[in-house]
Amino acid sequence: MSLPKTLAEDVARNLVMVARLIDEDPEEAYAYSRIALRLASRVAAVREAAGFAAYATQKYAEALAEFRAARRMTGSVELWPVMADCERGLGRPERAMAMAGEPEVQKLDKAGQVEMRLVAAGARRDMGQIDAAIVTLQSPELASSSVQPWTPRLRYAYADALLEAGREDEAREWFGKALEADKDGATDASDRLAELDGVEFVDVLGDDEADAAGEAAPRDEDGPADGSAKA
């Protein structure tokens, strides 16, 4: 709203493309974010979008700078967890841990606090403190039977930390709980469970062979297409 109409529309189009592409083609999303940034660097939403696009392409120093700029413009703390995760990406887990103890965390909503807990646990793991990471993830949100948007990732992170600590039976249980809550496929909990159970998915035919076979004979509707599972 602070921009002239034509410029605002150009910026908006680029931000829409960032949102559409950031998961499937982060490099392309990043390119669109740079255009928007060139057009309207004084708009907080543009700086935030540029930050997420840089974050998605692992340009953590650039992402952190953009998130800091957006925070200065808005005064909001909602980017605090992802800023801390950028510190992890830059190889500074101790800074991420310091941020986890700052007053800003108490100003976050529940989702933001859970995200901060995930980042802090990741920082503990970065520093080789696996037991501390497990304790960090133990929380009322983890113990709750209520499924929230953050539940699958929280349970998954806990399972992964347990597995790293050698607590395989508990890890299997929590990967299962993550899978139960993960209706949208946000994690690969099903694959992790399969690995723990010794299940390996293999291609019966290579890609070229499968194409040739598909051309040579009709597919049996009752049989497997191009792969199978073996224990």
Rank of each mutant, 00 (worst) to 15 (best):
R13N: 11
G89Y: 03
L37G: 02
L154D: 01
S145R: 12
A132F: 00
M127C: 05
P93E: 01
C86E: 08
A29T: 07
D197M: 13
E115F: 06
M116W: 07
M73E: 11
D226V: 15
L179Q: 09
G166K: 09
A123L: 04
D85S: 10
E24N: 14
A29Y: 02
A50W: 00
P218G: 06
G75V: 06
A157R: 05
E66I: 03
A121R: 00
E87C: 12
T57L: 12
E180N: 14
V82I: 09
G223R: 13
R125S: 00
L39K: 13
E170Q: 11
P81T: 07
R20Q: 15
P140E: 08
F52T: 02
L37T: 06
Q129S: 07
L64R: 07
S41H: 05
Q129E: 09
E141C: 07
V135D: 12
I22N: 03
L7W: 01
A171K: 03
A98D: 07
P103T: 08
G89H: 03
L193F: 08
E9M: 12
G206E: 14
S228G: 14
T187K: 07
W80N: 03
A216T: 13
G176F: 03
G91A: 01
M97R: 08
T74G: 05
S41Q: 04
R117D: 01
A12S: 12
E215A: 15
G51M: 03
M1K: 10
R20M: 13
G166Q: 09
R117Y: 07
I22W: 05
S190G: 15
M127T: 02
